[in-house]
Amino acid sequence: MAERNIVSVFDSRVHDSYPRYVAKIFSEMWTYRFALKNFVVNNLRTRYRRSVLGFLWSLLNPLFFMIILAVVFSTIFKQNIRTYSIYIFSGMIPWLYINASITMGCQTLINAEGFLKKVYIPKLLFPVVSVTTETVNFFLSIVSLYLLGIFVGFPIKITILYLPLVIFITFLFNLGWVLILSVTTIFFRDMTHLVAIVFQALFYLAPIIYPLESIPEQYRSLFLFNPFYYFIILFRKVIYGEPALVWLDWVAPIGLMLVVLSVGLYILKRLDRTIVYRL
């Protein structure tokens, strides 16, 4: 049995310090790593098992979407279709990943009501499961689509070796958002709709389907207010290879990730004891 049960003391007047709380919930994550793995594997299995083509469908969907976008926008912007499709690919797949992680993550604690009220299970587990599921899915699709790209003749960039690091930073960034939003969704149930709308707006506030150069100079500073912009740029530079990756490109994503994750963990700490009563 898990070591956590050997001695446990709960005192309503005693609150852990922030660092101690964070250390505690992450060490609980280690105790529950098998539950984490089980939940993620089952999520992916049900997602892929539902159709005959299984995993292939999760690839075909974004692939066709990108082909359509590439055909339409390369005509509009009069760009070379081959370079343009990899441009779209390098922005679109990461965007879909961030979008799916955060919008799916909102409901994760509400959906876990059946667990949280019946067994002792760490609350952090459910946001982590949700974001991990999307990350694994993203990783599988980006690798297969990249291999497909190489097969059709896209150039291989050496910067692709940074991809795992970028994914790791993005994973923690998404986790921070999911913590903030899944806890607030318990108190405001319509948060999910709001998040979906905001994401639609932010989609156009990042150079995903069009080149940044096609935006008039005076409006470009607007993009800087989109926190996801920096992540799209980083992904693009790593996958697309242009413009060249510089160390400055890492500053904003890592900084944003640290801020969002700390806020998320703080919110969880503040409301940890209240959550089960509001589900």
Partner: peptide, 23 residues
């Protein structure tokens, strides 16, 4: 006692390996 519902006031101390057969 298991820790599913934290009390609003007071203190719960458990020493030993707990097996809950609740749900």
């Amino acid at each position: 006692i298991v820790g599913i519902y934290p009390p609003h006031s007071g203190r719960v101390e458990v020493h030993g390996r707990v097996t809950p057969m609740i749900e």
